[in-house]
Design a protein around this nucleic acid. Structure first.
Lengths: 347, 347
DNA sequence: GATTAGCACTCACCGAGGAAGAGTGCTAAC
DNA sequence: GTTAGCACTCTTCCTCGGTGAGTGCTAATC
């Protein structure tokens, strides 16, 4: 869409003023607050054009204009001024995160809190996907018929779960299972394990008929475990901030919104776009109908340049895009750096 | 407080009608809906007395009466009719829980969902406190200078964490440490481990001077781990249900309430009364000022008759107490039974 | 003496009506 | 092409009277 410079300035003024005040912007306001050197009447004419183009709209006849989704999109793509994060903010973020780096879930939770605090919006943080290799498998004795399976993954995480092994499997046999895994499978992606592993083990064990049935059963359950821990958890932070937004003064809207917040699957989907890097989804561009008055800024972070998770902020379409983008961007970089440092492995 | 039978009947009618309708109850309503055999005028006189006693109050002059906190308390203590849970409900609860019994956090989360669904209120579920014994300790190799410590607790939970062990500790030495622990300490309460363990290990190892320093360091960190995992997580479910309650039509109240919901520490405190069994906290009886219009029904559940956690429901003071109590009560019993069955150990 | 009918009074709630104010669109002049 | 002027629209806010639910009091009744 090609629009002339003065229209751009006016659109920019409308978006910025509306972001700041949450009130429809009138022609007089623009001519007073922003120095365009033209009278309100001229601005009115331009606004009429902008409305025809679908970039702004009028809540009712005698009100000012507010940006449409398309208007925000144009603003974000072409008009927005870049914002620098203050050194203070940067320091705060870096320091706060690095003091919390013990457990991955603590990092995630705190990252979320931090983002929502700095942006005054709601934060979404997706745990690194553990669609990655299990490096090593250990079995430990538990109780009759059960064993503790400890999995070391190549992102440094350690998971354990109790698996049923049946009564007639001996510790030695379990050890064989672990050995086979550690020798042959180490580094296999979890989702590939199901097929590959089963074939391998089958070959290896075909001599030892007696064990076979039991162990195949264990494998079935193990693979379930692998998949279960595969899911990155999603952390929601600062949901309350939404209640301070004037667009959520309506209780029904709050209900709808929080309904989405309670469904972690939906939240995951919101962050789960395929492309890497920064992504901005404005209003009706969101998959979720309920979020038609919200925008989401999200970005991916990396560990060892490979596994990825994402973080995002969710706010009303009328959010301070440039600030939010800057913060999300900085946060992903800082997270990538720290997590990579933490989980750098010789392998 | 001694009040005559007719006053009791009237108070009961007021509470029940108010619970059902959320509207102040007038004298005419009572005389029509409940068969007391007296005219509205008589009821009015009685109501006037009840108000003087502080059991009911009047929102404004020309409105009916609503129960005060003291009124609810009297109702709960003396007037309430017991409710039987329908067989359907029972079956539903039992079935739903037992299909989910794999991971403790799944049980907790699902229990919460179930309670909030059945009561249409908000549920709080406190994980079993793991202020309990570590039965067994294992060490597994991780990377240079670190080891995976796997702890089996006597409530059946398995926890793992990566501990720094320093470069010059050999796997064999770690094994010794584990052996010492498993022989001497097994079953010691986590909070007692710090002192006892240190003394024991010190004696055991005083011969092997070289190892001592390193191992003492590990112990320090281990003990931190023990304490860290001590905290039971709290699960919140059905927070949205509160938004359907007419008392939370006011956005500011919602904000305050959700503020509490976001602080898991406060939620824990709400469930953390010392006495076992059922506990009812009405309105201003709550520690948390913000919850002065809410009541909490909570009860403790047990595993192996020892470790305890609790579950609760939170709703407006105008909640259906007898139903809520019945459900919470049934739920704790059913949870106790199932968890005890699951975690029954020969030890 | 307890109960009740009758009645005046209070007060929240609701909808109508009207004034104020913000903002527009149009027209005519610059 | 730009702007001043003006009529017009529409929301917001306030006021005001009517309505209805419910009370408290008084006097009559059981």
């Amino acid at each position: 869409m090609q629009i002339d410079e003065r229209k751009q300035k006016i659109l920019k003024a409308i978006v910025q003023d509306y972001i700041a005040t949450a009130e429809p912007v009138g022609s007089r306001t623009i001519s007073k607050k922003f120095e365009l050197g033209v009278s309100p009447a001229t601005i009115r004419n331009e606004m009429s054009d902008l409305e025809e183009m679908g970039l702004i709209e009028q809540p009712h006849t005698s009100a000012g204009r507010i940006p449409s989704d398309a208007g925000y999109r144009y603003y974000v793509d072409y008009l927005m001024d870049p914002v620098q994060l203050s050194e203070d903010d940067k320091k705060k973020i870096n320091k706060e995160i690095s003091t919390r780096l013990n457990e991955i879930h603590e990092v995630m939770e705190y990252t979320g809190k931090l983002i929502s605090q700095v942006t005054c919006l709601t934060s979404l943080v997706l745990e690194p996907k553990t669609k990655n290799s299990v490096l090593k498998l250990h079995f430990l004795p538990y109780e009759e018929g059960k064993a503790i399976m400890v999995m070391v993954k190549d992102n440094g995480k350690v998971e354990n779960s109790v698996v049923d092994i049946g009564e007639d499997i001996t510790p030695e046999e379990l050890q064989i299972l672990a050995n086979i895994f550690n020798e042959k499978m180490s580094g296999t992606k979890a989702q590939d394990i199901k097929t590959v592993l089963l074939r391998e083990i089958y070959g290896e064990l075909s001599r030892k008929r007696r064990m076979l049935d039991g162990i195949l059963g264990i494998l079935g359950r193990m693979v379930n475990e692998f998949e279960e821990v595969d899911e990155g958890k999603v952390y929601l932070g600062g949901a309350l901030n939404m209640l301070n937004q004037p667009e959520f003064r309506d209780l029904d809207k709050v209900k709808d919104l929080f309904q989405v917040f309670e469904e972690s699957n939906k939240l995951k989907e919101l962050l789960n776009h395929d492309q890497q890097g920064l992504n901005i989804s404005i209003g009706s561009e969101n998959i979720e109908q309920v979020l038609k008055d919200c925008s989401i800024i999200s970005a991916t972070y990396h560990i060892n340049g490979k596994q990825i998770g994402s973080i995002g902020v969710l706010g009303p379409t009328r959010m301070d895009y440039s600030r939010a983008i800057t913060i999300v961007d900085y946060m992903t970089k800082s997270l990538t750096e720290m997590l990579t440092k933490k989980y750098r492995r010789t392998k």
